[in-house]
Nucleic acid binder design. Sequence first.
DNA 1: TTGTGAAATGACAACGTTGTCATTTCGTTA
DNA 2: TAACGAAATGACAACGTTGTCATTTCACAA
Lengths: 336, 336
Amino acid sequence: MATMDKKNVSMNDVAVAAGVSLKTVSRVINEPDSVRESTRDKVHSAMEALGFRANFAARSLKLGRYGCIGVVMFHLSGGAVDMIDGIADAAEERGFALTMIKKRAGEKMTLAEAARRMSQLPVDGMIFNLRQMVDDFDTFEAPKDLKTVIITPMEHPTCSTVSDDQEGGARMACEYFLNRGHKNVYFVSGKKESLSSQCRMKGWRAALEARGIEPPGPLQGDWNADSGYAAGLVLADKPDCTAVLAANDCMANGVMMALRDKGLSVPDDVSVIGFDDELYKTIPNSILTSVKFRHRELGVRALNEVVAGLEAPSSRSRTLVSGVLVERSSVKDLRA
Amino acid sequence: MATMDKKNVSMNDVAVAAGVSLKTVSRVINEPDSVRESTRDKVHSAMEALGFRANFAARSLKLGRYGCIGVVMFHLSGGAVDMIDGIADAAEERGFALTMIKKRAGEKMTLAEAARRMSQLPVDGMIFNLRQMVDDFDTFEAPKDLKTVIITPMEHPTCSTVSDDQEGGARMACEYFLNRGHKNVYFVSGKKESLSSQCRMKGWRAALEARGIEPPGPLQGDWNADSGYAAGLVLADKPDCTAVLAANDCMANGVMMALRDKGLSVPDDVSVIGFDDELYKTIPNSILTSVKFRHRELGVRALNEVVAGLEAPSSRSRTLVSGVLVERSSVKDLRA
DNA sequence: TTGTGAAATGACAACGTTGTCATTTCGTTA
DNA sequence: TAACGAAATGACAACGTTGTCATTTCACAA
């Protein structure tokens, strides 16, 4: 059979089969309006019959671009799904595909290393998803011809960055407490090395200090419910504790369970706010008020920033995506 | 400056700068041992000085392969993170990068459509992550030159498939109940259109029927805790209900909360098993026994299957990754 | 019919690599 | 020193597209 003769069908094969020139086949694909309808049909039939598929490599070589955005996942956690979702949807919409690589578990990857690997791949620009500190963060310089956007709460000297406003979210939650008559707010942190946890803590601290309140020592957690429970047991014994901000919903739930086990009621005795708004998925009739970040939106913004910067890779911007306070009934208004 | 003269530095530029031929530069990159050390050093310095980076398109064009595996996410849910993690790690290890596209929300994507889009991208093979039914599943034929692996519980006539053994996991959980003296097992399902839910239900049914037990009508849930709670309220009124299998942990938790609110104790009055083993993250001191699937392993297997099939795209295999029962204390042994 | 300008098509080079094969250089031995 | 084989290097074509520019075909008016 004719189709078995060659491994790959090229435009030339199609051209011969259709009795036209190579260039005409190219035109049928890239500027169909410029070729007569009868010719177009011939070419289309030939493509169909031979099973032609344009060669990505040749095309990119000629065009000098790939139509792909690189994504480096330094960290792949729960919220990452929504972010990838946002990145992928936005990419799709703008006609880009994603090329992804990941830091291996245990491996220590620097920004420079990530950039080096990415620049061997078919990408026009790249996004780094960076949730922890990395050695060469401040000294890193992105390749001059490859627009680079870093998703991180820290500011970078030369690259564009995009981030949730974690600090602002924490501040918002704190002020929510304070505006309802609470005199102080305790804080349960996530893992020490997590930038999210650090930012949330920073916002909490700032909000209290802005009102002249000395922040009490934060309690160290590890994101999971058990560590929240342990913190809750400690907090239950503090008479001045009327408000607790936990760095995520799981720990907030742990805190609430501990308080309950100690005979205290939420929100009547102690008010609680968490982060990420995901407890309702697991707990029926959940009452937990929570700060929710729009991970999807974050991804969309990051991708748009890359695409916008393709022509001017050295441009630099900083985008913050605000959080939202999802109100339920875990906070008591003490003024009432 | 010399570095500003050209947009992209080619091997030719390096060759001229180093005073060697184009081919020698190529050799320094691909077979360094075949070039004298002094020459190698000259070339390396030149590459450094000019900031040379090999052109992916040209290289792929010549080699006829990309070193990339395509991933199509028809569905991007919680467990997907671990799976992507597995795929990415395995890819990394074998020297492949990932090229990813995603079905847009609301868009209706068929396998043929996904294959068509992927074959325009730089990929040597592809993985479809398919968690719901799709119109052309049975009629789909993968491109002959592009190894295709589908992650799905259904068998496919021509493509290789990889899946968790969801049915087996459900059977295992059921038998766990039955072996401990339970005479019947109730089932709370996930969303109707989910293949996971359907498979889990099928396994539950099979396990009961194998012992000559008529399965009671399943209760319809939607994966979230509230639907589990509703189911739990119904089950609390059934005197013969001693064992409940919920299609995920969130609903299992809902069931347990409802039972408790109705004055029943878990496991003393009713035993419960869930799926996914994630409740411990959210609930302190969680007692829920759960069937856990190894999503990461699933991803690894899928990638390995693609890579193994690169040379023989039409080969076909079926891989099942077994689940694990994580025992806690939510099941009572009635024989004791 | 012929002439005209616009529309349609084609020939050829170029993108930056790697494979093939020829040539040069080198270290050794006669 | 000459001759030799092995090691190192180079010249050139090829991969499958798209851009440039030249050529052919067409519809229409004279």
